[in-house]
């Protein structure tokens, strides 16, 4: 049971640690940066001068507080964009990489169903998502305390926990490209373009009368600024993301069941 998932997760440990260290450094950097913003920078003036689309894209409405600052720099930028695109890219290589390199031949000669191969390859990414969130949450808590602008642990736990469904969806988008493409590079480019494209799309339409179109983008369902500055926890949005993940993974498994390898 789950032998492939466990094997896959083990292979990703080094990458997960590197990612955790990198994003922790990012968090520390911005935490170190904050005090000079808090004291020497007129945030209200800065935000007013920006186009509303921009404010919306990066959740800048509460930029003056440490929570708002982190929501923008760490969670909108590093989590929604960087980590979302990275996970889509990484998951896009899961199946297409094995098909392209012909590793899939030996794998499929094992008595495992196609659906199981796809699902377990996806599950191998989950521990990495959990690890990165756990590590960076802890580091961020420490960093903000160190600079004298502490963020409550509950706030950090909330934003990291609620980011997980979003990140799972991004990885599931990558998986969908991975089963459809025959080359890893094609799948990766498609997945990255889709996640980033959805971000841009959602940002742009949200300032128009067609904001409802943005419902197709996973970014719509994760609002770090609301979580950190207003303590608004949208569990329905998280559930929608989890449902989307399940649908994408199931559809990917079903597609892979029927295709020639």
């Amino acid at each position: 049971m789950l032998e492939l998932a466990r094997y896959g997760a083990r292979k990703r440990v080094r990458g997960a640690l590197a990612l955790s260290v990198g994003l922790s450094a990012f968090s520390v950097l911005y935490a170190a940066f904050y005090p000079s913003i808090a004291t020497g920078f007129d945030v209200a003036e800065y935000v007013d001068a920006l186009p509303p689309v921009f404010v919306e894209a990066f959740g800048l409405r509460a930029f003056g507080t440490i929570e708002g600052f982190l929501a923008t720099e760490l969670y909108h930028f590093a989590w929604i964009i960087l980590l979302g695109v990275y996970l889509a890219y990484s998951a896009a290589g899961l199946v297409a990489g094995d098909v392209e390199s012909e590793r899939m031949d030996i794998l499929l000669a094992l008595p495992v169903s196609r659906g199981r191969v796809v699902t377990e390859k996806y599950l191998a990414v989950v521990p990495e998502i959990l690890l990165v969130n756990a590590v960076v949450a802890a580091v961020t808590w420490l960093a903000t305390h160190a600079i004298g602008y502490p963020v409550a642990a509950t706030d950090l736990i909330a934003v990291h926990l609620l980011s997980i469904p979003y990140l799972l969806t991004c990885a599931a988008i990558g998986l969908a490209f991975s089963v459809a493409a025959s080359r890893a590079s094609v799948a990766q480019r498609g997945a990255m373009a889709t996640v980033f494209g959805l971000f841009l799309f959602e940002t742009v339409v949200s300032a128009t009368d067609y904001a409802w179109l943005g419902a197709v983008a996973p970014m719509r369902y994760f609002d770090p600024t609301a979580i950190l500055t207003e303590n608004t926890y949208d569990f329905l949005a998280a559930a929608i993301l989890l449902a989307a993940t399940v649908v994408l993974v199931a559809a990917s498994a079903q597609y892979f069941r029927r295709r020639d390898v």
């Binding site: 390199s101 012909e102 590793r103 031949d105 030996i106 000669a109």
Partner: peptide, 8 residues
Amino acid sequence: YLPSNPRF
């Protein structure tokens, strides 16, 4: 099964 050019 042993494919031609096995890959791991």
